[in-house]
Design a protein around this nucleic acid. Sequence first.
DNA 1: TATGAATGAGCATTCATTCAT
DNA 2: TATGAATGAATGCTCATTCAT
Lengths: 203, 203, 203, 203
Amino acid sequence: MKPLSSKAEARIHAQRRRILLAAQQCFIEYGFHGASMASIAETAGMSAGLIYRYFESKNAIILAIVRQQLEMLRGDLSLNRKVDLAAEIAAHYGTANAQREHGMNAALLLEISAEATRDPAVAAALDEFDDTLRTGLIDWLSRPTGSGGQGLPATLAPRRALILQCLVEGLKVRETREPDLDRTLLATALHEVVPLLLAAPRK
Amino acid sequence: MKPLSSKAEARIHAQRRRILLAAQQCFIEYGFHGASMASIAETAGMSAGLIYRYFESKNAIILAIVRQQLEMLRGDLSLNRKVDLAAEIAAHYGTANAQREHGMNAALLLEISAEATRDPAVAAALDEFDDTLRTGLIDWLSRPTGSGGQGLPATLAPRRALILQCLVEGLKVRETREPDLDRTLLATALHEVVPLLLAAPRK
Amino acid sequence: MKPLSSKAEARIHAQRRRILLAAQQCFIEYGFHGASMASIAETAGMSAGLIYRYFESKNAIILAIVRQQLEMLRGDLSLNRKVDLAAEIAAHYGTANAQREHGMNAALLLEISAEATRDPAVAAALDEFDDTLRTGLIDWLSRPTGSGGQGLPATLAPRRALILQCLVEGLKVRETREPDLDRTLLATALHEVVPLLLAAPRK
Amino acid sequence: MKPLSSKAEARIHAQRRRILLAAQQCFIEYGFHGASMASIAETAGMSAGLIYRYFESKNAIILAIVRQQLEMLRGDLSLNRKVDLAAEIAAHYGTANAQREHGMNAALLLEISAEATRDPAVAAALDEFDDTLRTGLIDWLSRPTGSGGQGLPATLAPRRALILQCLVEGLKVRETREPDLDRTLLATALHEVVPLLLAAPRK
DNA sequence: TATGAATGAGCATTCATTCAT
DNA sequence: TATGAATGAATGCTCATTCAT
C-alpha cells in the first residue's frame, strides 16, 4: 500500500462530498428507502458502481448523511455567545435550505428520527447529538449572565433545556407540515414565549 | 349483491382490525416501507393473499393506520372540558403503547410525518388533523374561563396555540429518542412552563 | 348413490348453462386467461366455489365453451339444403352476437384458435370440427345439383372446400378487426366471388 | 447523458434482439399471457431483472413483437413487382418458421389478433397494418398491367382486395391447425382460384 | 479510476382452487 | 346446495450490490 498523496486524498474527499450532496437531495425528495442508488448516482453524475468505491453500502451513506446533518444542526445552534434565541430559531424556520448545501433540512430530520427507531447506528449518532445539545443548553442556561449565559438556577436549567429542545424539534416537524406558515406570527409568538422560558419564575 | 348479515359484517370488521393491529406492529418495527406484506400477514397469522380481501393495497393499509392514529391522538387531546394540560401531556408520555391496541404511538407519528412529505393522501389526512387540532386549541385558549377555556385575548390565542402544538409534537419526537426519560423531570418542567404559555403576559 | 331425479338433472343442466353463459361473456371481454373465475362467478350471480361443483376446473369450462361454440358454428353452416352461400356468409358477418346467447362470436373463435395451439384437448375439438366441416363442404360441393349440391367434379371439390373454409375463417378474423366494415361492399364482393368458387372452370 | 458509443449501441441492439427472439419462442409456445418473464429470461439465457434494462415492461415486449411480426408480414407480401400471387401465398404456407428468426409465425398472428381485441396499442398497430396492406392491395389490383398491376376497374378492386385479404388471413389461421396440410393440394387450389379473383368478370 | 451490465433476492399483488360452515 | 373465507404458488417488477472491462 502506497501512502496516499494529499492530492489523491483531496479527490476522495471531493467525490464523497459529491455523493453525499446527491444523496441528500434524493433522500429529501424520496426518503431513505424510497431513494434508489441509481437515482443518487444519476444526481451525482456518476455511475452506480463508482459509489461503492467511496461508500461501503447504501446504509453507510445514510449514516454519513445523518452525521453530517447533525453536525450542521450543532453548528446552527451554537450557544457560545450571547444570542437572541427567539430570533435565531425564527430565522431558521423554513429558509428553503433543501437546495443549499448546508443547513439542516426539516424533512431529513424526520427521516433521520424515524430511521433511528430501527438502525442502531443512526440511533447512536442521534443520541450523542442529543446529549451534547442538551448539555450545551443546560450549560448556557445556567452560566451567569456575565459569561454569556442566562443565569438560571442549577435545578431549573435541565427542565428548561428539555422544554426548549422539544420546542425546537417540534418547530422542525411543523416546518415540514406548514412550510408557508406566517413568519410574523411565528416570530411574534417566539419572542413572546422564549423569554418566559429563559427566565426564573417570579416569586 | 346480497346485504351482508351482521355476523358477516362483524367478521369483516374483526379481520380488518386484526390486519391493522399486525400492520401497526410491523410499521413500528420496520417502518412503512421496511415492513413487507408478508411480515404483516405472518404477524396477523394469515396468508398474504387474504389481506387483499380486506384492503385494496398496502397503501390503503398505511392510510388506514394513519387515520386511526390521528383519530387516537385527537381523542387523547380532547379539550372540551377543563383540563390540567400539563398533567395531560405528561401522562401521555411514553406509556409503552406499542403493544397496546390504542394510544398514538410516537414512532408511528414520525413515520406518518415523514410519509406525508411524499404521499398526498397521508399529507391530506395530516393537514386535516392539524387544522382541527389548531382550531380546537385556539378556541379553548380564547374561550372564557367560565366556559372551560383559558380566557386569552383573541390576538394572543393563535400564537400560543402554535407554540403549544410544537411543544406537544416535539415531546412526541422526544419520546422516540428517550423512552426512559425521567418522568418527574418532565412533569415538573411541564407544570412550570405550561401555565406560563396559558397566561396572558403581565403588564 | 341415489339415481338423480330428472328434476335434479334439469337443475344441474340449468346451472351449467348459467355458468357457461357467464364464462362466454367474460372470455369474450377478457380472453380465456384474462378472465378470472371470480369474474365468471360474479357474472353468473353465484359464488366462485359453487362453480367447482359443476365444472372440474377453469380449463374444463374453457373446453365446454369451445365445444359449445363449435357446435353452434356447425349449426350455422349447415349445408343440407340448397343455400345461397354468399348471402349466408354475408348475413353472419358482424351481427352483434356477443350479447346473444347463440351464434359463434368472432373474438371467441380467435381465442379458441390461439388456445388450440397449446391445449391438446382444445386442439382435438377443433380438429374434429374442421374435419366434419370440410367433409360436409366437400360432400355438398360434389353432390349433384339435383340433390341440393353443387355438382363439382370429385377432384375439384376438396380444393374448393379448402379455399372456402379459409375464406370463411378469414372473414371471422376480419370481423374482429373491422366490426364496422361496409356490409354492402362485403355482400357485393361475396356475391361476385363465391359463385366463381362454386363453379367448375370453363374450358 | 453521454452519447452512446456505437459499440454500446450495438450491444443494446443485440440484447434486445436476444430478448425478442426468446420472447417470440415463449409467446408461440405459451401465448402472450401464459409466457412468464422468468421463462423468457431463461430462454434468453439471462436474469429476469436484466430484461427490464432493455424493455420497460412485458407489455412493451409484446408490442415490440407485434410490430416486428407485422413488419415481417408486410415484407412478405410486398406487391411492388409483378408477382405470381398464388405461388407466393402457397410458398409461405407452413414453412416452419417458428425457429427461424424471420418470417411471420401463424400462431403469433392468432395471438396478436386475439390480443388486439383487448390491448388498444396492439389494436392500433394491427389497424395500421391492415390499412397499408389493403391500400397496397387495391393499388396493385387497379394499377394497369403495364405497371406491374392487375388492371382491375376501380370499383372492383376494393372488393377483390377484401376477399384476398380474408383468404390470406384464413390461410394463416389454417396453418396453425393443419401444419401438415398437403401442399400440392393447396398450391393447386390457389393456382386455380387466385386468377379468378384477379380477373374482371366476363361479360 | 470509472462504467454500466448483470445478478438474485425480495416485493406487492393476483388467482385458481379448497373447504369449513 | 351454496357460500365466500382462506390458501399458496406464481407473476411482473425493483433494486442494492458485484464485477468484467
